[in-house]
Design a protein around this nucleic acid. Structure first.
Lengths: 327, 327
DNA sequence: CCGGTTATGCTCTGGCCGAGCATAAGCGCG
DNA sequence: CGCGCTTATGCTCGGCCAGAGCATAACCGG
């Protein structure tokens, strides 16, 4: 075994994607970072410390310290280590490597009098193209054209059908829009050099004309981590009842649907949504009704925690409403 | 920010779950470990080293060094750090922590003249209860009884409906068997103290009467990692064409089905399986046929890589054959 | 009371899936 | 050479579910 002893000691960053839905807009918890000049938004994170009894405990501690928010539901997302920050950082001392373990956390804001934090940012601020609820136009033509250019300029490598992949990933040309591919879409935009981070990582100036449509940049690779979280969450609400982590204790079916739409970024068929929820026994009546909805009062329901013991994969299956492309 | 400087430098282990299917039995690549006395099977692993350009590259290097096998398909599984080895190890110097990043790799043995390695072990050797292909009896009654005892002895904590969870997890009492819950099943057996590792981690002697049915133990937490891989793989073959990573370049539909059955551990309905594969356009004819199958010769087909460009979620959907419980 | 708005119930229809029947085409053996 | 065995392959039937839309209920503001 040659070199069995040359192991590396690395710094471990624990990074949190904390999601909440407010006014039917998904928000992500950010903290200010002054590191690069224009104070990019950053996810809460911090290094693993001696006092941390476990990785997840360390993560909770960091979020609590930085945002005074106590987390409930937490799951591991992914461990990033292959591309640590900028090229400049990569050239640092090899023994100074950092890997970051990212977690997804869900909280219900407004309920239980949680202090409304600063730093909640709408996630579509960072991913404008991911909100398809209004149907309508898919991708700003500036982005689309540049993506096509990139796809056609066959790179030096294999990857022979970039155009095909592009169409499938972004739902072009009649290909269905798959909301779960948020991460793939971001990575494609990154590869095409169309998000500011891609330019910055290469030491270039980001193209100015893209600024309005490319979404807000984030500190280091945090936007990639957020994209990972969005993809994971959009997939998971379909087979695990995690959606209810984001809801208050009692809610209406409309509120549940609008929350699901907010996360998945697509419009859902109202009647079918209710049918699915009812069939699965995910909720039960409280007997109360919510007034002031602007129309007929809605029944207030609550989540039936027992479903996890009854059904194999209880989740909010999404039956979309097909809306034509834009007119 | 108190204590912002007390960060920990940790050792990073890269651990590989390398899977291949031989004679319609899934195998996992293991290496001998002499660490604990009885030379438990271990997954290939090694520490991240200065020469490793990325985490995945480091993993590939370690597997190659330890087993002379060059990996193809690789994906990250999970990062383990919360329970690092035994209690004894946990009491070590806090600065001596190790986290291990686990990867899943798929190879096709026998094809392209890969050297048949030592160390391929049938994965059901470690998880006998996961093979349900023959229908038949579910869980040895020794295990079942002890699980029920454990579930009924309500622990000090919450977790009030352990019995219900047990039934759902193991498909008891008419609950459907969900092959993807392999990890949950292992974790439940671990929590109930029914796998040897659980006893060893607590410094106890494993119960002797369970030895024949509890599956073979592995080094450290490697069996948990393998369970994670099984769950992930069983889920993934349904929506991504990863099954073909395990197949030779050309194969028959029966071989494909038997491979899917081997991995998922359940029997599939033959005609419906073919219909699904055909509908999805996952394979194309080669024009050749395979003889010597013992019956009518089967067409040889090959994987159509282009499907990834056509369908949103190309995978081998599994339509099971319902077999009664045991007679 | 009327129109607007939202909630809720119900129907129709096509597609997919579970299940099984039927036929084709090899092999070994008497 | 024909028979029985085995596996491959084609096809059908019925039920369930999801997509889509019609219809009704119940509240609000004028």
């Amino acid at each position: 075994m040659t070199g069995a002893l040359e192991e590396v000691r690395v710094r471990v960053d624990l990074t949190a994607v904390v999601i909440a839905v407010r006014a039917y807009v998904p928000h992500v918890l950010t903290v200010g970072r002054a590191a690069p000049a224009p104070a990019l938004a950053a996810l809460p994170f911090g290094p693993l410390q001696p006092g941390h009894r476990s990785l997840q405990a360390g993560l909770r501690a960091w979020v609590e310290r930085q945002t005074h928010l106590r987390l409930g539901y937490v799951e591991q997302l992914y461990t990033f280590g292959d591309r640590v920050g900028t090229v400049a950082e990569l050239r640092q001392d090899i023994n100074n490597r950092t890997i970051s373990i990212a977690y997804l956390a869900l909280v219900s804001i407004g309920s239980e009098g949680l202090p409304i934090q600063e730093g909640w940012r709408p996630w579509y601020h960072f991913f404008p193209w991911e909100d398809r609820r209004a149907g309508g136009s898919p991708l700003p033509s500036v982005l689309l054209d540049r993506l096509l250019d990139w796809a056609r300029s066959t790179g030096p490598r294999l990857d022979k059908d970039r155009v095909g992949r592009l169409h499938l990933t972004f739902g072009l040309d009649g290909a269905p829009w798959d909301e779960e591919r948020a991460l793939e879409r971001y990575e494609m935009l990154y590869a095409a050099g169309l998000v500011p981070e891609a330019s910055l990582d290469d030491g270039l100036e980001p193209p100015a004309d893209l600024a309005p449509v490319a979404g807000a940049a984030m500190f280091a690779d945090h936007r990639r981590i957020l994209a990972t979280a969005i993809s994971r969450l959009r997939a998971k609400i379909k087979y695990r009842p995690v959606l209810f982590e984001l809801m208050p204790p009692t809610f209406t079916l409309s509120a549940l649907q609008k929350t699901a739409e907010a996360l998945s970024g697509v419009a859902l068929h109202k009647q079918n949504f209710r049918r699915l929820i009812a069939q699965q026994g995910l909720v039960e009546d409280t007997g109360e009704t919510a007034t002031g909805t602007g129309g007929r009062p809605a029944k207030l329901v609550r989540f039936r925690g027992e479903v996890t013991l009854e059904r194999p994969a209880p989740g909010v299956r999404l039956s979309a409403t097909r809306r034509g492309s834009f007119p």
